Amino acid sequence: MSDLLERLRGRGWRMTAQRRVVAEVLDGDHVHLTADEVHARAVRKLPEISRATVYNALGELVSLGEVAEVSTDGRAKRYDPNAHHPHQHLICTGCGLIRDVHPAGDPLAGLPDGERFGFTVAEVEVTYRGLCPTCAA
């Protein structure tokens, strides 16, 4: 499970009822919700929360580096609360389901020195694509 709520409390993020609900909706493993999905789930917990409030809270969380935006093949942006836990993504090309994966080994090992063109590589993103069991059936 992600530790989003604990991280936000530790940073002193002002935890209004609306912000708390957005953080609660996002907290967990394999959570990659769109803003509209966050809003729909937040409304179930706090019926008066507005779409604008959800979008504002998501923007703040991304700016703080506490939530990562995940964009996949022109689909709506998704929000990943596991921004502080190194991982890659496995994405279903059928339905868009996203799962966090933790491959073994150093992802930079696959990039030979001759292919780095003098870059000092700071970050590696690997995305695995395929069909989930439901779409493959």
Rank of each mutant, 00 (worst) to 15 (best):
E123R: 11
P112R: 05
V67M: 05
P47E: 09
I49G: 06
M15P: 01
R20F: 13
A35E: 06
R14K: 15
E24Q: 14
H39I: 02
Q88L: 04
H84T: 06
V101M: 14
R11W: 04
G12N: 08
G118C: 07
M1D: 14
G65H: 03
A40R: 14
T120G: 10
Q18A: 15
I98T: 06
T16Y: 09
C132P: 08
V22T: 09
V38H: 05
V124T: 12
M15W: 09
V38M: 03
H85I: 11
G65M: 00
H39Y: 13
G59V: 02
T16Q: 10
R19D: 10
P47L: 07
S71M: 03
E37W: 11
R44N: 07
H30N: 15
G10S: 14
E123L: 10
G28K: 08
G105Q: 13
K45W: 10
F117T: 03
V38L: 02
R75A: 12
R99D: 13
T127G: 05
A23D: 01
T34F: 10
H89M: 05
F119N: 09
H89A: 01
G65I: 03
N56E: 12
E48L: 15
T53P: 01
R116I: 04
A40C: 09
S63K: 15
R129V: 15
G96V: 06
V101D: 08
H85C: 00
E6A: 14
R11M: 14
S2A: 15
C132A: 07
R44M: 15
R41W: 08
L8T: 00
G130N: 04
L108W: 04
V25H: 12
A109I: 00
G74P: 04
E125P: 01
R11C: 01
Y55C: 04
A122Q: 13
D73N: 07
A57Y: 08
G114P: 07
C95I: 03
V101A: 04
R99T: 06
L33W: 11
S2E: 09
